[in-house]
Every structure is written in C-alpha cells, then in structure tokens.
Design a protein around this nucleic acid. Structure first.
Lengths: 138, 138
DNA sequence: ATGAGTGCAAATAGTTTGCAAGCTG
DNA sequence: CAGCTTGCAAACTATTTGCACTCAT
C-alpha cells in the first residue's frame, strides 16, 4: 500500500471514520496517478466487485469533507476528485480529447481571496480547470 | 431594447443566424444583469410562454458557439452563461447561499496558456469560478 | 452490539435528441 | 419557400436518496 494511502487512512481514522475495503480500494486508485477521477472513472478502475458505484460516490464525497481529496469540475460539469498527492492545492491541465492530465501549480488563490474579501465575502473557495488539446491528439 | 442586445443581434445576423422571439427574449434576460444564468434560471426569467426550456438550452448553446456569451460551471456542475457585457473574458465571485454575483477581472489566462503551451497543448481554455458567503448571508 | 458504511433500487436534476410543425429571411 | 428554429416527448447522464442489511470498531 502506498505511503499516500497510508497517510489518508490515518487522517480518516483521526476523524473517527472507518476503514473499509471499498475505501481502501478507492484510495489506491486515486493514489495511482495524479489524474483526477470522476466517480464513474474511479469505479471503472476498481477490480470487479470491489464495491458499488454508489459507494464510490459516497466515499469520494466523504473524502472531500474529510479534506483528503480536492474536487474540481470538468468542462462538461462532471465532478472530479484527486488526492492532494502531498502537494496540497493545485490545478490541472487536461486534454479534452484523451484525458491526459498535467499538474499545474499556478494558482491565484491569495489574490482571489483578497478580492473576495474586499466585497465582504468569506469562506472563499475557487474551482479552476484548464483544457486544451495535447500534442499526441494534435 | 438594450444596446448590448442590439450588438448581440448584429453578431447573430452576421453569422447568418435568425432573429426570433425566443432569442431576443433570452438575450434581454442575459443583458439585464451581470449575473451568469443557467438555462433553467434564464428560462424562469422569461415571461410565461416566451418559449420552451429546451429552446433556452439550444439558444444558449448556439450563442456560445457564436461567441456572444461565455460559459462557466457552478460548484455543483451546472453550466452557466453570461453576455460579454462589452468587457470580454472575465470571472465571477458568487455567493453560494443567495447567488449574488460580483464580477472579477482577475484572470491568469495568459500565464495558463504559457504553461499549457510548454506542455505542447493547444486550443487552451479555462474555467474558473470563485465562491464564498456574501456579507448579507453572514 | 451498535451505528457507520454498503448495496440495490428507485428517484432526481440537468441536459440532449428525434421528429414533425412553424416561422424567418 | 427552403431550411433554420421551435415545441413536445422521450431518452440520457451524472448524481442522490431510501431502506434494509452488514461489518468495523
């Protein structure tokens, strides 16, 4: 089991959450690559019978609430999740044709928070996804 | 009819598209505020009987292809559209409780494009939405 | 043993599509 | 009057919810 999965499990335990087969399996999938997964995609990566698709939805949602994964939104509105991979908040550059994903550390979180605060907004979060056609897909 | 709507209509005509009742009505709604609308929300603003919800979906999609509106995605994945309002590309700060929206001109489009190109990606686009709780909602 | 977690089925939300009829240019 | 547009119905995709059962702690 990867170190990243171990860390995540500790975090879950620390919050009084239970470590189950499906949760471990889903974490393993997320840890396998930096590419963000939708619930359906993560489900597709699981060995047949690992768990139900609904469980994937519920676990990913739970993981997000627990702060061990971050979520984003695809161009088409699909929700995706990825482990912090030990690097905390970041964004992705995704090929809209093949799904290949590169990590982007560029982020204007602080600036956005400053602007938002100037409007009196609190609990500021943001979602940013970058799309393009990768060299392989032309 | 607002100037903004006039401009949009000219753009549609220039592309050989037809100016119909529903299209004008939808443009009026979009022009009424800087707040981005989902198809359902735009539909709700129309006078009863202006047109069918499906038509709103199709028109907004068409408007985006024609370049007269820009689209974004809500935290929950809902697709939203807004007129350029004569200021071109921009982003929004939306209260996740009441929907109040402020315009944000902060954008790292150029930087993102540079990073994406360094990976060999072309046709780079990005989606960014900022959320918070506005002063009125606490 | 107790309640968090899961599976299955069914409900929902948002959006898209097929096709015949209507209206714009 | 040609064919872009629309309306209506139905299909679809992604996600959520209800409920009984199971298993981690």
């Amino acid at each position: 089991m990867s170190e990243l999965v171990q860390q995540s499990i500790e975090l879950l335990k620390a919050q009084g959450l239970r470590i189950t087969g499906p949760r471990k399996a889903i974490l393993e999938v997320l840890a396998s690559t930096e590419r963000p997964f939708s619930s359906e995609e993560a489900f597709a990566q699981l060995k047949d019978g690992s768990c139900d698709l609904v469980t994937v939805y519920r676990c990913l949602d739970q993981f997000e609430k627990s702060g061990i994964v971050e979520s984003g939104v695809r161009e088409n509105g699909t929700k995706v999740y990825c482990l912090g991979h030990g690097h905390g908040h970041h964004h992705h550059l995704t090929c809209r044709l093949c799904g290949r994903t590169e990590r982007i550390d560029l982020c204007m979180g602080k600036e956005l928070e400053a602007v938002a605060k100037s409007f009196g907004f609190t609990k500021v979060t943001h979602v940013m996804e970058v799309f393009g056609n990768c060299p392989v897909c032309v």
